[in-house]
């Protein structure tokens, strides 16, 4: 994973804020991943345009105090990729 990689949600999957649960959820065919706050904050930024570097920069701006933020984001994205929640966008 390098900073220029662009990730998007798996096609047909949807990220949604659920007020009733007070968290983001990732919705997929007949199922749901209930996300913690940091996972929701990262996935929210995967708009198909931002690359990993831009995602980290946006989070850094939002959480300037966050220690180890960069490593956490990379680790989470690798995990999300392994789980099949996200996919790497083909190079344009």
């Amino acid at each position: 994973m390098n900073d220029a990689s662009v990730y998007t949600l798996r096609p047909g999957w949807r990220l949604q804020w659920e007020q009733a649960q007070e968290r983001h959820v990732l919705l997929y065919p007949e199922g749901m991943v209930q996300l913690n706050a940091s996972a929701g904050a990262v996935l929210e930024l995967l708009d198909g345009e931002r690359d990993v570097g831009a995602v980290i920069a946006a989070l850094r701006e939002r959480f300037p105090e966050g220690e180890g933020l960069e490593d956490d984001v990379r680790e989470f994205l690798a995990e999300a990729l392994a789980q099949g929640w996200i996919r790497e966008r083909e190079a344009p």
């Binding site: 949604q16 659920e18 009733a20 649960q21 959820v25 919705l27 007949e30 199922g31 749901m32």
Partner: peptide, 8 residues
């Protein structure tokens, strides 16, 4: 309104 989010 009750919180259901998956619908079949």
């Amino acid at each position: 309104a009750m919180g259901a989010v998956q619908l079949g």
